[in-house]
Write a protein that binds this DNA or RNA. Sequence first.
DNA 1: TATTAAACGATAATTGTTATCGAAAAGTCA
DNA 2: TGACTTTTCGATAACAATTATCGTTTAATA
Lengths: 150, 150
Amino acid sequence: MQPTTVMPPMDELRKVFREAGLSLTHQRVVLYRAVLEMRSHPSPEAIYERVRDEIPSISLGTVYKNIRAFMDAGLVREVSPHHGTLRLESNLEEHHHLVCTRCKAIVDLEESDLEPVRLRRELPGGFRVDRYSVEFRGLCAACSAKPDLS
Amino acid sequence: MQPTTVMPPMDELRKVFREAGLSLTHQRVVLYRAVLEMRSHPSPEAIYERVRDEIPSISLGTVYKNIRAFMDAGLVREVSPHHGTLRLESNLEEHHHLVCTRCKAIVDLEESDLEPVRLRRELPGGFRVDRYSVEFRGLCAACSAKPDLS
DNA sequence: TATTAAACGATAATTGTTATCGAAAAGTCA
DNA sequence: TGACTTTTCGATAACAATTATCGTTTAATA
């Protein structure tokens, strides 16, 4: 199991930040390295806790601002497209989702719309799967017609 | 395209609620029907807006309380297991997730751990897929060892 | 129909996140 | 390197989503 992300040396970091249009600050370097090292898909709070070991005076606001900057620059991604608010479904059958990352629309795909998903190896030790679903992300017809106003 | 959930008549609803241990109130009936009818995976706010047509005096708190009751009873589900807080990942390769619904841990599966996902039919009109990933939900080893204290 | 238990609406409290602003640090260029 | 401009930082206020509290109303039970 090799690391999926190798820790970049300082001069590489300088380049990454420059290309992302981010000026290079101590806080940013420490934050970025922390996120690369943490394999646990951390929350802002978890990153904050971790980074405080190195920069005790850092503020949670700075963590949020830089996370946002990293996401905007494509250096990191957020795991769930609908983390902001609870979304409910009453379809209790096995099914899959088509998610528009712009307008957050969610459309069901029936289980039979897909060939069954097949694992090539064992799952990591002891994990007990209840169910699985496939999430297709992209832009719905309406959103991909509109220009990107971000 | 047939409805995935058929609107239950009143006596059926009475049974559903009874089996779920939920007493039958007007608000609850209207809320439950609204969620079944809304195919859009609605947020609490969206349900609130919708239900206010029928019960203008309903409070948002009641919506939240009953959503929670429905979820606990297994009548509806929440779409994302990590909606409460932002979770980041720095692995920008295609990959999949193993998610523990108890402790919210997320573990990556490499793309090569799975046979490629294959669609059996066209996606609904005009949706443009950027990427997809498979989410396996269940309990991690640690959580499935512990008793359920809920 | 009286009694008891549960749910309701109003509102306060909490939590996760973004915005504001003066001070400090980084970028730029002579 | 030093002077100047721009960006970021930390502190704090504001905001949004969600949960808790509590007195009143409604449903369950018999």
